[in-house]
Computed example of a mutant assay.
Amino acid sequence: MKFPDKPPIIEYKHELRSRYGETDRMGYVYYGRYLEYFEVARTEMIRSYGLSYRELEESGVMLPVIHTEIEYKMPILYDEKMKIKVMVFDTPAVRLQTFYEVTTSATDDVHIYGEVSLCFMNAETRRPCRAPESFINSIT
């Protein structure tokens, strides 16, 4: 997975602890859970700028996921505290592209790399639209 070769315009960190029900028989966090963790971190990142998904939806704009990519480097175990770093490298236009690094205190190495792209969509027409000006103004 290749991250852009420039500094991010947004960098947000969120902490979560893996729960027993999120692990498999080996005690590893189940691979499908990472997209949920990314969503939690991304939602909190947006909230940290004074916005919320709910407000976007109430204003008629939805943000469906259009692409995901995950690279698993090392497992995360039950009850480990994860640090999820969300990065945005480009000002959103029609697409919001977010990148992720998941680490723990167990090692300095990154456990998981991820990328999730979302599309701003008009809720009524279900067609792509430009990011709302209020969204752009809040994050820049």
Rank of each mutant, 00 (worst) to 15 (best):
E57H: 07
S59W: 07
G60V: 04
G60W: 07
V61K: 01
V61F: 13
M62D: 09
L63N: 01
L63V: 00
L63W: 09
P64H: 03
P64V: 00
P64Q: 03
P64R: 04
I66C: 09
T68Q: 09
T68W: 07
T68H: 07
E69V: 09
E69L: 06
E69Q: 08
E71V: 15
Y72V: 05
K73L: 13
M74R: 14
M74N: 10
M74F: 15
P75H: 14
P75T: 11
I76Y: 14
I76K: 12
D79N: 11
D79Q: 04
E80T: 06
K81M: 01
K83H: 05
K85E: 10
K85G: 00
M87D: 02
F89V: 01
F89K: 05
D90P: 02
D90L: 00
D90C: 03
D90M: 01
P92Y: 04
P92L: 03
A93C: 05
V94Y: 08
R95M: 08
T98W: 10
F99G: 00
F99C: 01
Y100C: 07
Y100D: 10
E101R: 12
E101F: 09
E101N: 04
V102R: 14
T103C: 15
T103W: 09
T103Y: 13
T104C: 05
S105G: 07
T107L: 15
T107N: 06
D108T: 13
D108M: 08
D109S: 14
D109V: 06
V110N: 11
V110E: 11
H111N: 14
I112T: 13
I112V: 15
Y113K: 12
E115Y: 15
E115M: 14
V116K: 10
V116G: 11
S117H: 13
L118D: 06
L118G: 06
L118Q: 14
C119W: 03
C119N: 03
N122L: 04
N122R: 07
N122V: 03
A123S: 11
A123R: 12
E124R: 02
T125H: 00
T125A: 03
T125E: 01
R126F: 10
P128I: 01
P128H: 01
P128Y: 00
C129F: 02
C129S: 04
R130M: 11
P132A: 07
P132F: 12
P132E: 08
P132C: 05
E133N: 13
E133I: 11
E133S: 14
S134Q: 05
F135E: 08
S138N: 06
S138I: 00
I139S: 02
T140M: 11
T140E: 12
T140W: 05
